[in-house]
Design a protein around this nucleic acid. Structure first.
Lengths: 119, 119
DNA sequence: CGGCATCCACTTAGATACTG
DNA sequence: CAGTATCTAAGTGGATGCCG
């Protein structure tokens, strides 16, 4: 692990740990990334759509995950004036900030998967 | 979330999700980052040392965390021929691969913490 | 010293059914 | 359609004690 750069080195270790903790808590669980990647790929989606594309999730869990993501400003929730009501979810501009994290995780995860496999 | 780059775009979505999953599983839990950052900062450490610097952890959990990290090649475990035995843990070269992940998480986490706080 | 065994508490996830 | 209610199953974490 080499010397960290930019803002990271201006911040004490304790606080960096807080940042790590926050980020990990936000993305914890089996479904958050899947939901975000789906919303990113397909644009606006309704509850039902997400229930179908997120294979294996139950409505209760999906509901909780969506709430978490909304609380953390990663997605928006829009209730449409139709009958019966439809609700539309979309990814936010703010969620773009998470792209470096996701990229780094994918890169590391794929490399690591190969490394462990051939061990 | 903008277009992904390099190897990430050569890999299908399903597989990218696997990479994400692997990486998240490796780093899940409250202690892994703390242990890695400590080992990185202090070099070789014994079980007892880690038990002290990792505030709040119990021996059972520390033991499990260390095993996980060793299985994933992030640390080495060396038994010394002393009486009574001492065991020394150290971070591996391979763990350097995780640095971009950690940096990205810290950056995002710190920014996000501020964003949420002032909401 | 460096753990593992045991037990318990708590949180989370899943299945299913139901409602506005 | 978009969830909530309820119940149960499972995983995880902490406390404690013991042993080589």
């Amino acid at each position: 692990m080499e010397k960290v750069k930019c803002r990271r080195e201006t911040v004490p270790l304790k606080q960096r740990m807080l940042g790590l903790k926050d980020a990990m808590e936000l993305f914890a669980g089996k479904w958050k990334f899947s939901i975000l990647l789906n919303l990113n790929e397909y644009g606006e989606m309704r509850f039902k759509d997400l229930l179908e594309t997120t294979t294996g999730i139950s409505p209760k869990v999906l509901s909780k995950e969506l709430n978490d993501l909304e609380q953390n400003l990663m997605i928006t929730r829009t209730v449409m004036n139709t009958k019966p009501v439809t609700v539309s979810y979309a990814i936010t501009e703010y969620a773009l900030h998470a792209e470096p994290v996701i990229s780094a995780l994918i890169d590391f995860g794929l490399t690591h998967r190969e490394t462990i496999k051939r061990r």
